[in-house]
């Protein structure tokens, strides 16, 4: 069965120079469930906008894993903006995906994905009525 989020992503980037391929679909189908599992256990809800942003990030990530590409390092102080334990949990998530590919993701990948979760968590918190 097709993943509706992958289909939304494919539709959004169809007319670009980097449309979603069958290989992308297969890899996203392996990676996105890991992100959903973590979001579920952490109580993080992605709205439609944040889900699409996560999906396009995931697309770029699985492509980088495929080509063994590493991003430049980011200011590590950004990690301090994530919830306690988030970086470790996202490291586990990323390693789970990368291990069968024989790829070790640098800390930048962990930080960027952790920031997606952090933003979604903060938006959800802001939109929740306070008691």
């Amino acid at each position: 069965m097709n993943d509706p989020l992958i289909e939304r992503l494919a539709d959004a980037v169809r007319d670009t120079g980097h449309p979603v391929t069958d290989t992308d679909r297969a890899e996203l189908a392996a990676f996105l469930p890991l992100t959903r599992e973590y979001a579920g256990t952490s109580g993080i809800v992605f709205d439609d906008t944040r889900a699409l942003a996560l999906a396009v990030h995931a697309l770029a990530f699985v492509r980088r894993v495929r080509t063994a590409e590493h991003l430049d390092a980011l200011d590590d102080q950004l990690a301090a903006e994530t919830a306690p334990g988030r970086m470790d949990a996202v490291r586990t998530l990323i390693d789970t995906y990368c291990a069968p590919h024989g790829f070790h993701a640098h800390r930048t990948e962990v930080l960027l994905l952790a920031l997606h979760f952090e933003t979604a968590a903060q938006i959800a918190q802001q939109s929740t009525p306070q008691a």
């Binding site: 939304r8 992503l9 959004a12 980037v13 007319d15 670009t16 120079g17 980097h18 906008t49 699409l52 942003a53 396009v56 990030h57 697309l59 770029a60 990530f61 991003l71 980011l74 930048t108 960027l112 920031l115």
Partner: peptide, 21 residues
Amino acid sequence: GSGGAGAVTAKAKYGHDIEFG
């Protein structure tokens, strides 16, 4: 980081013609 989130969001919300990554 990946060069796509803002562009894809603009496409989804406003129908912009985008390039990303």
